[in-house]
């Protein structure tokens, strides 16, 4: 986008401006509450404990791995939905959004029923390969990917449907195969949508609680991510919970802001 299209605030209608500011306040006031209630005097001491770093590192690793998994599976799925010409596409699209609607705890139980030690698929994984996902870091990644993937699929699909298919057709007439066309024409043209979806997906995975604690359990260093640590801290020491939440918020804001600047800024 160019600078021209952004400098319209002189003519912003009040009908839009007022609810917009109200919306912003609605999103920010709870954050302000956290900042005001934070125990600033004891904060450094609480921050530099091994538990916090362990949970934070695990959160970042798992959210990133889950996002990578979502990209690997989600982008092709989005392409299938947008370009595959499948019959009953709207039904499939509705199923893709199931993890969005499902309470995450129920999602976790569903994962246990399928991938657990006694699950439909899980029992074979266990007897054939000795793989058991629950209570492992891999289980955390699976749970986060399950909950976060719809965010990626929906934004990538939206970008694909908005993109002009004539470029792809042109590439095809020039002799490019479908895979080459996808890599060299389609993917670059939808890059902003992919980045936006990746960011959403990563953020959702980072904050994931319900499915993670249900499917992967809670064990420090193995499956205790920041949201789990926050929840348990809330039971006994709300101050610690506030500190942990702030750390998670700060890290995610820094990561998201810098990535968006760099990727989207560079693309446009």
């Amino acid at each position: 986008m160019t600078r021209r299209s952004r400098s319209t605030n002189g003519r912003l209608p009040l009908v839009l401006l007022l609810p917009a500011l109200l919306g912003l306040a609605f999103l920010l006031v709870p954050l302000v509450g956290l900042l005001i209630k934070a125990p600033w005097s004891t904060l450094p001491g609480r921050l530099f404990s091994a538990d916090v770093w362990q949970a934070l590192r695990l959160s970042l690793v798992c959210a990133t791995a889950a996002t990578a998994l979502c990209l690997l599976l989600g982008v092709p799925l989005a392409w299938l939905l947008a370009r595959g010409g499948l019959p009953g596409r709207s039904v499939i699209r509705a199923f893709v959004t199931v993890p969005l609607v499902l309470p995450p705890v129920v999602g976790g139980v569903a994962l246990l029923l399928v991938l657990g030690r006694r699950g439909l698929v899980g029992q074979h994984l266990d007897t054939w390969f000795g793989i058991s996902l629950p209570f492992t870091t891999a289980g955390v990644i699976v749970a986060e990917a399950f909950v976060a993937m719809p965010f990626l699929v929906i934004s990538v699909e939206g970008a694909l449907r908005a993109a002009d298919p004539r470029y792809e057709e042109a590439a095809a007439t020039l002799g490019a195969g479908r895979w080459l066309t996808f890599r060299r024409v389609t993917l670059p043209s939808i890059a902003p949508g992919v980045v936006a979806g990746t960011v959403l997906c990563w953020a959702r995975a980072l904050g994931e609680f319900g499915a993670t604690i249900t499917f992967a359990g809670n064990f420090p260093g193995r499956t205790t991510t920041m949201p789990l640590a926050v929840y348990l801290a809330l039971e006994t020491d709300p101050d610690v919970a506030v500190v942990l939440s702030l750390v998670l918020l700060l890290v995610s804001v820094v990561v998201l802001a810098s990535l968006r600047e760099r990727w989207i800024g560079g693309l446009r």
Binding site: V109, L112, L113, G116, R117, R118, P134, F135, I213, T214, G217, N218, F219, P220, T223, T224, L228, Y231, L232
Partner: peptide, 20 residues
């Protein structure tokens, strides 16, 4: 030597009833 520290007693019970 727990494999998981559950967030409440019902969550612990769920893990048992599912055989996990």
């Amino acid at each position: 030597q727990p494999d998981s520290l559950e967030q409440d007693v019902k969550a612990a019970l769920t893990k048992v009833s599912l055989g996990e």
